[in-house]
Design a protein around this nucleic acid. Sequence first.
DNA 1: TTGTACGCGTTATCAC
DNA 2: GTGATAACGCGTACAA
Lengths: 340, 340
Amino acid sequence: MVKIAATMKDVAEYAGLSIATVSKYINGIKVKEENKKRIDEAIKALDFRVNEIARGLKTRKTATVGVLIPSLENIFSTSIVSKVESILLKYGYSTIVCDYRQNSKLENEKFDFLRNKQVDGIILVPYGISESKITEAVNDNVPVILIDRSIKGIDCDVVLADNLNAAYNAVELLITKGHRRIGIICGPQDIYTAQERLKGYIRVHEDYELEIDDSLIKYGDYEIQSGMELMNEFLDQENRPTAVFVTNYEMTLGAIMALNARNIKIPDEISIIGFDNIQLANVVKPRLSIVVQPMQQIGEYAASLLIKRMKGDNSGFPAMIRLKTEILEGESVAVINSYI
Amino acid sequence: MVKIAATMKDVAEYAGLSIATVSKYINGIKVKEENKKRIDEAIKALDFRVNEIARGLKTRKTATVGVLIPSLENIFSTSIVSKVESILLKYGYSTIVCDYRQNSKLENEKFDFLRNKQVDGIILVPYGISESKITEAVNDNVPVILIDRSIKGIDCDVVLADNLNAAYNAVELLITKGHRRIGIICGPQDIYTAQERLKGYIRVHEDYELEIDDSLIKYGDYEIQSGMELMNEFLDQENRPTAVFVTNYEMTLGAIMALNARNIKIPDEISIIGFDNIQLANVVKPRLSIVVQPMQQIGEYAASLLIKRMKGDNSGFPAMIRLKTEILEGESVAVINSYI
DNA sequence: TTGTACGCGTTATCAC
DNA sequence: GTGATAACGCGTACAA
């Protein structure tokens, strides 16, 4: 048995009123108490629910926002999405989540896809999006909030962590504990967050007047495998670093796996500071020191800002919201005195 | 500058053709080569994109499916969503993801929300959904695929892991390695997967003619904290189990944290088999033995089945697809001979 | 092959 | 307060 959903017309007929009256009642406009009851009755009897599609056609709003992220299997993204979704829902918006698998072709396609779906706004963790798409969307009155990365040359709201100082602080912590040969496992050189984190590493070295040894800087691709490989390279190289800073979650996983595989003792043989995953940090032994990004906050700010824009409030555009990270200290960093 | 999106009418006028012709061309119906060009030109010039909302109103399809899961911060759910999303996209569907935070009130609300959005189908990891909502949806021709749990009393397609045998096999492995006092940290007694996993534990004990000691069965709530607490209870109790089977990911995390905190050596002092997270398993030292659910497969089957149903093919309804789990063996299980 | 005309379910603008 | 009625942008008989 296939029922056809009841429409306002059905409700109106059942209640013996006009469609217009029913529509008004549903949209919170005053109706005679008597009619109110009859409409409620009809709605219940017919199991009527508003057709948001038709409503959207008329109002030119879909009450839907698109969220486009690199991966749904990455806790950084999904934590943000989770927060975003819950906030948006409070305002009546639903969230279409798309995952572009670190593939900028897919990213561009899914961006178009969202546009076709007439989403009222977009939250994007950008990778290789075509800049014109963003400006087009904004011009079409579809606000876009960038997360994690600003794109130079275009005006767009952005919410991100202070990646530079995140790295600065992590490396400074290592320096404070006496480390002088500090390795860093960076992300891809063309990725904004990776650049910023490397800058932090460099700046803190400069501030402490420490030489930078290029052999201590390695570039990975933010995936587990490369964390493993690059940590192994560090371990194999003469004049090993005494500490390594790994700049994202997946590579931190890989680095730990490499250390475990070779039975290297943390922090006795090497110190490590990782990135982003509290659960991981607590389950590794000894507990890992990590940089923690404020994902909840990022989600909150992004969602709130988007709502503001969708309401038509463009004050402060383009906003750049840069949030502070924290260091969660575990026991993976040794205090050494062998260097001055 | 706020542009108003171009419509087919605009395209038609620009190309000097009728709306109908443009519509046909867009929907893949033959058009004169000459007109084809002019339409393409117009589309490009006006930056026209189909209004999926209007299309949906007409076709009574939104090309959108809803996915409703307990949490977006749980790798089990998001892995499935990731797969589902990528498959559905190939067929032109977008995915609205909702997270109900293990709260059945929210679950029911968001289910309604999805219905209002006129989604063409729903994939649900159920918790405390009202059964009538599901049957209503199905009657309204909005297919629902359940994941991870069937609901007795209603006919509905379901895709799940063979939880019973997952537990059976895990515990059997422990028995095979000589363990006789095997603890289990179960989930909530009113949750389907938890019941099934406990059944597996019990059945394998029966099959091996081992007594079941109630002090070895503990009930948690599938959260980290309870994994920690219950593992501590095991450690404190006289006549400790020699091995513990933890029946979901979060509690496995908690259990490991408890062991680490007390400096208990795995597997020398206690053996452990966990659940669900390969990344975790590889990063813990020694590598953890875990039960792995085929999340990719679950996602694939769910998405494919949903597409089939949305096409109107109801063959085999209600389908129950039960997928096999695997055990990923690490080094967290000791072989002991102290028992016969 | 192309065009005309209508309807999808809702909101908004009028009169009443 | 209420009720006709015209949009909204598209798909689709049906006619041309």
